[in-house]
């Protein structure tokens, strides 16, 4: 467990590549320390389910942990945690996509977590945004996701699995030991938050502080994502 509060340099944290899935319209592969996530985007295509006529596009997301990705083997059918993450990612990306440009169509995002070592939700949101940018679907901004875990006085950005699950217990009766985690999706150019989940027990000032720290964590990932997209653009242009 990290003993010191350190906002690590962004290059150490995130590895990002596009074009991981050649069949998909857009795709991305993200490595956040030991967490590995792959994302594929299909669309805009015909609305699969029999839904009402929608003059805007619909964003649908399916997140799945590979059965071997976590410490305990997961089921091959999507369970409630994966469904919840999928819904959060849809809500995080809906403000980002230019829905009015693609009437009566559906944009499908498929995310597979190949290895789970913490910070999955933040990494998945970033992977999905990079895949959307790679796909040529018009978007307002690239959403960046980041997780933060607060244990006692320590703030840990991008916690590993052990850090997420570990708790500091009260050593004395009256002591309130804070155990909180927060995941945020930020749209850097627009300075808007498109997803926010926080759990724990904190007073209002601490809540504000960890939200601000997490936002800063998102901002620090932005240059890595920008460099990845720029590099993939140059590769595509040189191939044509």
């Amino acid at each position: 467990m990290r003993k010191d509060y350190q906002l690590p340099k962004f290059y150490d944290r995130l590895v990002c590549r596009t074009g991981a899935v050649s069949q998909a319209v857009g795709s991305a592969y993200i490595e956040l320390r030991n967490t590995k996530i792959i994302c594929a985007v299909y669309g805009p295509r015909e609305v699969a389910k029999k839904q009402e006529f929608n003059i805007q596009a619909t964003v649908a997301c399916e997140l799945k942990f590979a059965t071997f990705s976590c410490r305990r083997r997961r089921r091959h059918i999507q369970d409630s945690q994966e469904k919840e993450y999928s819904q959060i990612i849809v809500q995080a990306l809906q403000p980002v996509v230019r829905l009015d440009k693609y009437p009566k169509s559906q944009i499908d995002i498929f995310i597979t977590v190949l290895q789970n070592d913490g910070s999955v939700l933040g990494g998945a949101i970033t992977a999905a945004s990079v895949a959307l940018a790679d796909s040529g679907i018009e978007i307002f901004d690239v959403a960046i996701g980041c997780c933060l875990r607060q244990i006692g006085d320590l703030s840990l950005i991008d916690p590993t699995y052990l850090e997420e699950e570990g708790r500091l217990n009260n050593e004395e009766e009256d002591e309130i030991v804070t155990n909180a985690n927060v995941t945020i999706a930020l749209l850097p150019s627009l300075n808007q938050v498109s997803a926010l989940i926080m759990n724990g027990e904190l007073d209002v000032d601490s809540t504000q502080r960890i939200i601000k720290d997490c936002l800063e964590g998102c901002i620090r990932i932005y240059p890595v994502v920008r460099e990845c997209l720029t590099k993939s653009l140059e590769e595509k242009m040189s191939r044509n």
Partner: peptide, 16 residues
């Protein structure tokens, strides 16, 4: 008066 949880839902985005 402590905050136990936060969750943003809905399709729009919010300013910090």
């Amino acid at each position: 008066n402590n905050i136990c949880s936060l969750q943003k839902s809905g399709t729009g985005s919010l300013d910090p």
